[in-house]
Design a binder for these strands. Structure first.
Lengths: 213, 213, 213, 213
DNA sequence: AATGAATGAGGCTTCATTCAT
DNA sequence: CATGAATGAAGCCTCATTCAT
């Protein structure tokens, strides 16, 4: 009797339920911010009710953490795939790397970045984990490429690869967030493509071996 | 004895009270985040009680807004003073500008930046005003300097001054925030001076006229 | 034992919960006044806690509005039923109408009237809606009966039916409130039945066609 | 020195200060309601500051009480003066009495009545005192006149003078309040003069000795 | 597993009242 | 007397979390 009921429900809801919840959660969190989001909203977005969330997650914080991990995994998966087997000159690899890292110019992407930026006080652990597995990982990869270029003579030996990589990553991430989410501040917008390309160009130009001599 | 206690309270009631409240508020907001801060904490930090805040400010949000404006005014005051009468070559002016903008390497500075970064969802108006009067203003000044340099032949004519300025400002702001507040993520720290100088160097190198010819 | 306690709580959770809350709310509001009533008291009266109220009502004001509407609906329901199919002479209909309108001589009735009288400044919208759906509706019905009587020659043709109806309704409503709630002012009490009957008698006498000629 | 300052202030503020405060208080209380009124508003209306009120009155409640007593004294003063030496037939005296009691058709009058109506829960003592010294006093005077008329044969011997007087007073008071303060409820307005006159007419007609015989 | 009513701690805001000046 | 900054109790409302069904 009760099993009949249950089965009916389950027909339209396979075991992917947790994933669906995570997706819904990230969507709402990213749109409205962590503190602004009521669990009820997440539930509604996922088509369930509040209580259901507690079957899968301890509490709001864990839901956020898992949602972000889920997102990061996919994002980095894409980037790693794009970099697979890259072998050319350092400048080309750097360009490709940055391009693939910032290719996804969708709203969701920027919403997530804004969300994460606001997490430092609300959920410091999540903030730190994101930094470690996101931006830092990215700039280390880039720094390594620059180091390669320095060794091969393609780049100036005295270049500060660490700072260059950091500037590129933090600058671009932040520009994406700012220009998009403060969209109606006059003059803040700039073309996505231009931003990425000019930034890479500037960086590569700055890494060139000294002009004279 | 009891008169001593009483006197203590009344000794600290100068005409500068609003300023004191703003300072205290910014201190607490920056340390704990806007949402995490109870007005009672702000009051305690200022040595008054909750209700006193409402003599000077409509509500929590206005308190935040005013505290930030107060802070911004001082910060930009310092920068403008530093830039007063600067006339040298563009590269020198750019360097001085960035140095003065990021000179304040104190904790308070970075706490405030982190606070602001988390305001997008909590208090969008404040977030936007900050962007418009802070970072944007800064990168516009820098972009203007670069344009000067392009006109005088000091910089490459095809350089994207807009993007260079943005990258420098957003990159440095974000690095300050990240490296400091995620301080125990291993490997995220970098010397403040090195960060600033290397960033400027990279940027200036990237703006040099083409090497060959 | 502990299970008993628990059960007690859960036994009273029928689908009629909103109604229960409305009843409890009206009871407390009417007893203590709108401003004097803490939502916690309403909740306690209903056997729930503060928060539960917010499942059903937006805020204190809506709770009041709904409680009053709920009450008015019942009150007018009773009156309409009493008037169903009345066809006799105007004087009889008027008498029956007023009697049925003021039959409920219970405390609750008078408490509610007092409550409503104090709402003009606190919640003007509710006050106005009550006026429009309560007293005004009542005196319009009465005025219509008097007009009937005038047409049939039962009442003086020059009688001011509008004012008569208003005087009757407002006078009686107010007397109920005053005499009851200022009960210990010496000499303010008067028998309910006598008040109603004498008022009707006076009114009907005043509506009689002129004596002489 | 300090006496100089004091004198300056006193030049424009004679000893009538308490009266001014009472007037200002009644004005604000009547306009906004007792609970809605902040002492600061009263002070502003009187051109002083909050603290000053506490030099003359214990607290908010006493301020209200005194303001109302002050008002009542004047109102009844006027009425008694109007009734001085009235000697004609009962019907004429009744008419004159009611007319003089309700002559003041000003806004202030109605505001005060509304204020008082809402005081039952907020400040029961004031409410009761008002009832005793206002409406009750009025209807007793009127009942006495009617009794005179009964004795002289001008009115029906079986008339209920008590109820007639009450109905007249409460009905008119309430109509003034309702029609004015619910002014935008369509159809609630009626001419002041017509209301008073028709009410008196109806009452007198109802008091006539029986028509036939 | 899912529901959703209920809980209750937490925080913002109001304002009568006090009191040093 | 007058000021007005400061107090602090009170009350509304929110929402993460629980739990009987």
């Amino acid at each position: 009797m009760s099993s009949t009921k249950r089965t009916l429900k389950w027909e339209r809801r396979p075991e992917a339920r947790p994933q669906e919840l995570l997706d819904a959660a990230l969507r709402v969190f990213a749109t409205r911010g962590y503190r602004n989001t009521r669990l009820e909203e997440v539930a509604a977005e996922a088509g369930v009710t509040k209580g259901a969330l507690y079957h899968y997650f301890e509490n709001k914080e864990e839901l956020l953490l898992r949602a972000i991990q889920h997102y990061q995994a996919r994002a980095f998966g894409r980037m790693e795939e794009a970099m697979r087997g890259e072998r050319g000159p350092a400048s080309a690899r750097l360009r490709r790397m940055v391009e693939s890292a910032f290719s996804g110019n969708d709203d969701a992407r920027r919403d997530v970045l804004l969300l994460l930026n606001g997490l430092a006080h609300a959920v410091p652990e999540v903030y730190r984990e994101w930094l470690a597995t996101g931006p830092m990982k990215a700039w280390r990869l880039i720094a390594a490429i620059i180091e390669d270029g320095k060794k091969s003579g393609e780049f100036r030996a005295d270049a500060d690869s660490e700072v260059a990589a950091r500037l590129l990553v933090s600058g671009l991430v932040t520009q994406l967030v700012w220009q998009y989410h403060a969209g109606d501040v006059p003059g803040i917008r700039i073309g996505h493509r231009r931003l990425i390309q000019s930034a890479i160009d500037l960086c590569l130009a700055g890494l060139q071996p000294a002009a004279s001599t």
